[in-house]
Design a protein around this nucleic acid. Structure first.
Lengths: 330, 330
DNA sequence: TTGTAGGCGTTATCAG
DNA sequence: CTGATAACGCCTACAA
């Protein structure tokens, strides 16, 4: 592997000059030309490890996610990657599996490797996260708000719950249930609170047996839906507050063909196969969230950012049935 | 950030001794104890960049995939990650978007960063890939075979096509169509060839208008399915040769409720919502493929591997309807 | 077994 | 604007 000294020797200059050419600093035109020629001839590319060691930070950012198999996060990752690529950064994807310990481990690695920055959707509180922000490392928190003074891109989850509920109420449903995530998950709680408040405002009942907490996954949605349908007085509509729970609900629905039951889903459904013409969809477009977060991070890395910013990511209006373009990936 | 010299000073030993403790080499017991205590007190962790520079390879492996939003690949990634974690390696996920140029760029980066190894599902032929294997870097190719002499984990795609077709024939279907990927995609062609051969063997017709090449995505499946249903003599069953095409086919089917039409799908359907009781599923379990590939890579990195091995990843037998446990992630 | 010291490849400082 | 040189933090001969 060619090194910078080889290039310097071939071009008849010092390594310092080669380095300057590499980094776009002022160099006499003829020397620059000679250096570029040498680089070409040797097929030289800078050793990024050495560069990182010297510069005290690498050209890699970590994207720390709780579940890499959830399309919400892969889509978000896709957005991050697109911006990172533009900025000449590579992305390391880390899967915490909703495990705070794993999360700490990955954040530690990001620190040890002197990564340029970190984007994290936190699985619980993190001492290391605070530590990183205090040490002025570039950090952006996504999707799940934390109390720390750090750049964040999140949804207004209360508002999401309200809007999705309102859409169902406006369609004439009167007994609207809510399936949401565990009480330990703030986004789940906030969306359910939005459901509660919107129903109160519309003068509709919100009995607690219509609020079901399950895990935020497909089987959670299935369980909840089954339970709701078995109720003595079942709901006439159901709000699923995330994508996977929505998938679970749809499965039960399409297996039992309950055509009359209204359904609302907060989240995107890339691989759904049953018709959703009758489903009120509040699409979150996680890719956009990834774009926002990555842009913030790049600014922070470049030192162009001031005090911590907390952005509320806008979403699509609720609509009936998925528009074609949001279906397949790409 | 504490450095190795700080630990050495605090423990009253040389940096060499600290390094030895860190790397599990023989050190006098009392010194080792002192060193560990100092490490604890300072919260020291080795700087991985410096270590990489010195050792000439890092503890990171690159996973180069053509489409990070396809559940097949995220699941595969999940498997890779699990093994990597055990082996103390981090995984960098790189999305090539089926673009050979992007792929070359990422492979180049993996090389420049002295990564410990690379797992790649190739999007077309790659000069760099050959270059890497020739330079004895740890490389494993997954999912899509290449002619090079390199570790590989792939499916027997011809056999997959045959088995899935046979399952449909055994269910009594007589006019079985095949929807597969572009003719430029070897796996798509091989699976279609399996379809052709199996039909021939069963004495069933395989007219070319029942073989449809589309893109290997959801919209491809939708288009193909629509086209097939409009045929003067439509098929009585359809084989979809990958997961996304299968999703597209299911969408059309559940929108038109063609209950009589047989369907076979090669691939896993984690987020499907319509019932699949009548679908012959040949599950590939990509996570297992990721596990195999990562194990091979780890062996190669450790120098425990000899000549290049080419593994055929086993799959599940064809079955009717998805077993419960393969539905939701996890 | 332990310590000393050189070097991995790059960039930044400081003279010239 | 250019060149020599000293770091960046770690590991590993080599010598003791």
């Amino acid at each position: 592997m060619a090194r910078i000294v080889d290039v310097a020797a071939l071009a008849g200059v010092s390594t310092a000059t080669v380095s300057r050419v590499l980094n776009g600093k002022a160099v006499r035109a003829d020397l620059e030309k000679a250096v570029r020629k040498a680089i070409d001839e040797l097929g030289y590319t800078p050793n990024r490890t050495a560069r990182s060691l010297r510069r005290q930070h690498s050209e890699v950012i970590a994207l720390v996610l709780p579940d890499i198999e959830n399309p919400f996060f892969t889509s978000l990752a896709r957005g991050v990657e697109d911006i990172a690529q533009e900025a000449g950064l590579s992305v390391v994807l880390c899967n915490t599996d909703e495990d705070p310990d794993k999360q700490e481990r990955y954040l530690r690695i990001a620190d040890d490797e002197n990564m340029a920055g970190v984007i994290v959707a936190p699985a619980g509180p993190s001492a290391l996260l605070r530590h990183l922000t205090e040490r002025e490392r570039a950090v952006v928190v996504v999707d799940r708000a934390v109390p720390d003074d750090v750049d964040q891109v999140t949804f207004d989850n209360l508002e999401l719950g309200r809007r999705a509920t309102r859409a169902l109420a406006e369609r004439g449903f009167r007994r609207i249930a809510c399936v949401t995530g565990p009480e330990s998950t703030p986004t789940a709680v906030a969306r359910a609170q939005g459901w509660r408040e919107e129903l109160a405002e519309a003068g509709l009942p919100a009995p607690e047996d219509l609020l079901v907490h399950v895990n935020f996954r497909v089987d959670g949605g299935e369980d909840a839906m089954t339970r709701l349908l078995e109720l003595a007085t079942p709901p006439d509509a159901v709000l699923a507050t995330n994508n996977l729970v929505g998938v679970g609900a749809l499965r039960v629905l399409s297996a039992t063909d309950q055509v009359d039951l209204g359904l609302g889903i907060i989240g995107d459904l890339p691989f759904v196969t049953s018709p959703v013409d009758n489903v009120s969809l509040l699409q979150l477009r996680p890719r956009e969230m990834g774009l926002s977060a990555a842009r913030m991070l790049v600014q922070r890395i470049r030192g162009e950012a001031g005090p911590a910013r907390q952005i509320v990511q806008p979403t699509q209006p609720v609509r009936l049935g998925a528009p074609r373009e949001s279906g397949p990936a790409r």
